[in-house]
Every structure is written in structure tokens, then in C-alpha cells.
């Protein structure tokens, strides 16, 4: 009976985390978090610097033992059954941890051997992945000659060489060129379509919004919220906004728009202004009146619901700086 329960759980849940705690001396990095990730789900993990994201990943991948609580990967306890739990996962760490003194091909072979992929299969898989990531032509070159984007692509290719059922992706597109970014985003979309469970940490909130079925927002070691992006946005409907642009620019416009009735907060985003309010209709009337008074024309005006970034800022209490939020890891 117990075995049957175990099998059913591992069939439906890729990750199960129960009351996980990690302490470093007196400091609690992760404080009693619980969540589960279903098989085939894409799960985003968002949080500011030091929130506990990396510590959580290190526990889920068996590198760092939890102080208390438990986590299972496809039903395998990550502490007691570490090797079996790891066999079905691929790990792409935040830094491109490739061996720069080895060639791209040697790196792929090493990763495959660590996961005991058979000789024929590893040759086939390495060829397929290097071609997919547009690295095949450079497979014989030492990695220290690769660009940052190429190293990142190789890191991800190494994480996929064992055809994992669960992929941990830690900041996969952070600081990359457009080409690498597109290749990696396409690959993640393909994996999701192929039924691979993805655990994604990213500071690119739009990336999480577009890719993830659910996101968890972690702050100070605690999970502040966990839900589908759209449902999270509905929890803060008070943070609606108006996006407006004018035919002429003015250095004093932002300050002037802040004075429009019912505008709680305003910021400039490129050639547009974003005005936060609880009453969009009132603000639209105010903006039109402002345009008339200042002899300018509104070229576009749009009502926006709260973004995932708004949810993040609200839940973590971060301060906005310029066009975005600061200190998001």
C-alpha cells in the first residue's frame, strides 16, 4: 500500500517540498517552505538577492543538506536517495560552470559520463544538442575561446545530455546577447512542449510571466506567494495603471503628471509614462485635461492591469528605481 502511494506521488509530482529549513549558524536562509511541482509543469522561483533561491536549489539538487524538512524528486528523498533523485534531473547553474581548458565536445562527454549515458547515446545526444545550440562547428575548440553566450549555451547543453525529466534552470538568460537569448528561450519552450518539468529561477520577471505555469515569490527565506501569474496579478488589482505617451517631450512632464488627481505613483518608461492608480477612469479624464491645458496631444493611452513585476514589488517591498525594480536576483 505504501509502495503504491509512493508510485502515484512520483507519477504526478516532480518535486515535493515539505517544511524545508536551512540554517547557517543563527541565520535562517530558508524558513519552513513547502510547495510541490507537478510533472510537466514549468515553475518559476522569484526573489530578491539573498531571499533563499540558490540555497533552495542547492538543497533540491542534493548539494546542501537541509537543516530540517524534506524534499523528494519523483518520489526519491533527496537526502536518503540522492543518487536516484539526481539521475532524472538536469542542472544548469547560474554561472557557466564549464571546463574552459577542455573542448566543447570533451565537456559534453564528461557530463554524459557522470550521468552514465551510454557511448552510442552520448555521441548522438551531444551531436544533437551541440547542433541545436549552434556549437557543433566549434566542438573541437577549447572553451576558453568561446563567447559568454556560447559558454552559457554549452552549460545548458551539458544539463540536457542525460535527457532529464526535470531541469533546474538558474538564471538561464541573464546578461546574454540577443542571439543566445533567443536560442535558449526557444529551447526552453521546446522542453516545456516535450513535457519536461522545469524549475526556473530568473530575475527576468517577464520571462517567468511568459514561460511559467506557476511562480513562487520567496523573500527572506519565506514564500510570500505561490500561484499562476495571472491569478497573482488579480490579488493586487488595486495596482492598475495607465500608460500614456505625448507628441512632445517635456523635462517637467513626469512631475506634472504626478499631480493629476488619483495618481498614486508615476514613472517614465522610454517615451511613455506609467501612472499607477486605483481609479483608471478618473486618471484618463485627468490626463486628457492635462494635455489640453498644456497644449499637447496624447498619441496613445492604454489601461493596464498589474504586471507580475508589480506583484513582486508589492510582496517583497522592494523599491522601484528608474524603469524597473532593483536588487532582484
Amino acid at each position: 500500500m505504501k509502495f503504491r502511494e509512493h508510485s502515484m506521488t512520483s507519477d504526478t509530482q516532480a518535486i515535493e517540498v515539505s517544511h524545508l529549513v536551512k540554517q547557517f549558524g543563527a541565520f535562517t536562509a530558508v524558513n519552513d517552505i513547502s510547495f510541490s511541482v507537478a510533472v510537466g509543469e514549468t515553475f518559476g522561483f522569484l526573489g530578491p538577492n539573498g531571499a533563499g533561491k540558490t540555497t533552495t536549489i542547492r538543497m533540491l539538487t542534493g548539494i546542501s543538506p537541509p537543516t530540517s524538512g524534506m524534499a523528494t524528486i519523483f518520489g526519491h528523498d533527496i537526502v536518503r536517495d540522492t543518487v536516484a533523485a539526481r539521475q532524472s534531473m538536469g542542472i544548469v547553474s547560474e554561472t557557466s560552470n564549464v571546463y574552459t581548458d577542455l573542448t566543447g565536445w570533451q565537456n559534453m562527454m564528461l557530463a554524459a559520463q557522470l550521468y552514465r549515458v551510454g557511448r552510442t547515446e552520448r555521441d548522438r545526444k551531444a551531436t544533437e544538442l551541440l547542433q541545436r545550440f549552434e556549437l557543433y562547428e566549434r566542438r573541437g575548440d577549447r572553451v576558453h575561446g568561446y563567447s559568454k553566450g556560447m559558454m552559457r549555451r554549452l552549460t545548458i547543453a551539458m544539463g540536457l545530455v542525460n535527457s532529464p525529466r526535470l531541469l533546474f534552470l538558474d538564471e538561464p538568460t541573464s546578461g546574454l546577447d540577443v542571439e543566445s537569448n533567443l536560442i535558449i528561450r526557444d529551447m526552453i519552450s521546446d522542453l516545456i512542449r516535450g513535457g519536461v518539468t522545469v524549475f526556473l529561477t530568473t530575475h527576468n520577471i517577464e520571462e517567468a510571466n511568459v514561460l511559467c505555469d506557476r511562480v513562487a515569490i520567496i523573500d527572506k527565506g519565506l514564500i510570500a506567494a505561490i500561484d499562476a501569474p495571472e491569478r497573482l496579478k488579480k490579488t493586487i488589482q488595486s495596482v492598475q495603471s495607465i500608460e500614456v505617451s505625448f507628441d512632445r517631450s517635456s523635462p517637467t512632464r513626469l512631475d506634472e503628471l504626478r499631480q493629476v488627481p488619483m495618481v498614486n505613483h508615476a514613472r517614465k518608461e522610454g517615451d511613455k509614462f506609467k501612472l499607477f492608480t486605483e481609479d483608471p477612469t478618473e486618471v484618463i479624464d485627468g490626463v486628457m485635461a492635462y494635455a489640453h491645458t498644456h497644449n499637447t496631444r496624447v498619441t496613445s493611452i492604454t489601461t493596464l492591469g498589474p504586471s507580475l513585476e508589480d506583484v513582486f514589488v508589492k510582496l517583497t517591498g522592494l523599491q522601484r528605481s528608474g524603469g524597473g525594480v532593483t536588487a532582484i536576483d
Binding site: 539538487t61 540522492t82 543518487v83 539526481r86 560552470n97 564549464v98 557522470l114
Partner: peptide, 14 residues
């Protein structure tokens, strides 16, 4: 320093 040791620590080996 290069974080490649984490790759070994997280591999499915004892």
C-alpha cells in the same frame, strides 16, 4: 572558484 566542482557534487554519483 569556477563553480565546476558543484557540477561534480551535483552529479548522480556518491
Amino acid at each position: 572558484r569556477t563553480n565546476t566542482f558543484d557540477r561534480l557534487l551535483s552529479a548522480p554519483i556518491s
